[in-house]
């Protein structure tokens, strides 16, 4: 047990350091952060799933927050590094959801009934896979044209942060954040309506 604990604290230190560097604008650190957070989330999910009764969903938000508390909660971090952590977590959640949606979509399109191993996050089962994929694409576009807007959607949507929390994390006023959020929603709604029609 001891080595494992050591490993985890090593991981935790690493994530903290990377989050700090990313928060200070280090792009390489930000990209290194993602796989670490991702692995951590998966690991936590696997552990939790083992204890969760069948049929019950696991909430990604809760998971992310728990991960945050475990990994960074003790340290007094600047909001930038916290934001980086949550952003990385949001990406991780998005990745998981999108992957899941892809699997479901390919299953839907045929190829026989395969048993899908949903041993990771069982979240958002209501969202039809095509729409999650469409959202993913719309978000990619948004990231190209408006990074701020994109980041706010990531934080609010995938990690379930409240307006207040998001404002704190991004260093914006709540009023600005609300507008950014309204804008992002309008933009995505417009984009997704087009997809829905076309």
């Amino acid at each position: 047990m001891a080595p494992q604990a050591e490993d985890r604290s090593h991981e935790s230190a690493m994530i903290t350091r990377l989050a700090q560097a990313a928060g200070a604008g280090d792009a390489a650190a930000a990209s290194e952060l993602l796989p670490l957070v991702y692995d951590e989330l998966r690991r936590m999910a696997a552990a939790k799933l083992a204890r969760t009764p069948p049929g019950q969903t696991l909430q990604a938000t809760a998971l992310v927050h728990e991960a945050y508390l475990r990994l960074l909660g003790e340290a007094r971090e600047s909001w930038q590094s916290r934001a980086e952590f949550f952003f990385a977590a949001a990406r991780a959640v998005q990745h998981i959801l999108v992957e899941e949606a892809r699997k479901k979509a390919s299953l839907k399109r045929g190829g026989g009934r395969k048993r899908v191993n949903l041993d990771e996050l069982r979240v958002a089962e209501e969202a039809p896979p095509d729409e999650m994929l469409a959202l993913d694409e719309a978000l990619r576009e948004l990231e190209q044209t408006d990074a701020t807007s994109h980041r706010i959607v990531m934080l609010r949507f995938f990690t379930g942060l409240s307006e207040k929390e998001s404002a704190e994390l991004t260093g914006m006023s709540e009023r600005t954040l609300r507008r950014e959020w309204q804008f992002a929603r309008a933009k995505l709604h417009q984009r997704l309506s087009k997809v829905a029609e076309g």
Partner: peptide, 24 residues
Amino acid sequence: SHSDLAGESFLAGPTTGTSSTSLA
């Protein structure tokens, strides 16, 4: 107009778990 059209539930989060407000 899209800001108005996007109802309360739109993008409220995939993880809230209540089916009536789903993204879909």
